[in-house]
């Protein structure tokens, strides 16, 4: 049996994590969401450091920009600079509409930039189509063996 696709969500807003996990858990893909609340934790998770030695390698990273301790752009450039992590698609998922944030994110190698919608129907639609696209339709490179 195929294991559930693992998603890492980096967000300091528990309400967004709950809602996203909920939407993804109920979707056809039966995705599993691992959540961390700041940039330092995100890097620890991805590098299997500290309490994350048994953490799975995520198939998709959903990253907020405005994060405590280490912000989203820093996390993004760390990921893209690490050959072991660079191939994992990173979706920026944030409230910022600033064109400078959008430009910077793509500059740093983000695979996609999505704005968190302000109401439920749109939020559900965006999260659903994000997972469907990146973990369904898109062809991704072979995962690195640990």
């Amino acid at each position: 049996m195929k294991s559930k696709p693992e998603i890492l969500m980096v967000d300091d807003n528990p309400a967004d994590i709950d809602l996203t996990s909920e939407v993804l858990a109920q979707s056809k893909g039966h995705f599993h969401v691992n959540a961390v609340n700041d940039g330092i934790e995100a890097i620890a998770f991805l590098q299997h450091k500290g309490k994350y030695t048994k953490a799975p390698v995520p198939a998709l990273i959903v990253l907020d920009l405005n994060l405590p301790r280490k912000d989203g752009c820093d996390v993004l450039s760390n990921i893209k600079a690490d050959p072991a992590l660079a191939k994992i698609p990173v979706v920026i998922f944030t409230t910022s509409q600033a064109s400078s944030d959008i430009a910077r994110s793509y500059q740093l190698g983000a695979n996609c930039y999505l704005r968190k919608p302000g109401n439920l129907p749109e939020f559900v639609a965006v999260v659903q189509s994000m997972a469907d696209f990146w973990l369904g339709f898109a062809s991704l490179p072979q995962r690195e063996k640990r």
Binding site: N13, A15, L19, T95, K116, G118, N119, L120, P121
Partner: peptide
Amino acid sequence: LQEPLRMVATYTQLLAE
């Protein structure tokens, strides 16, 4: 104001649903 409002809007909608 947008950020907290987004929480109120989404979660009251979730309650309703």
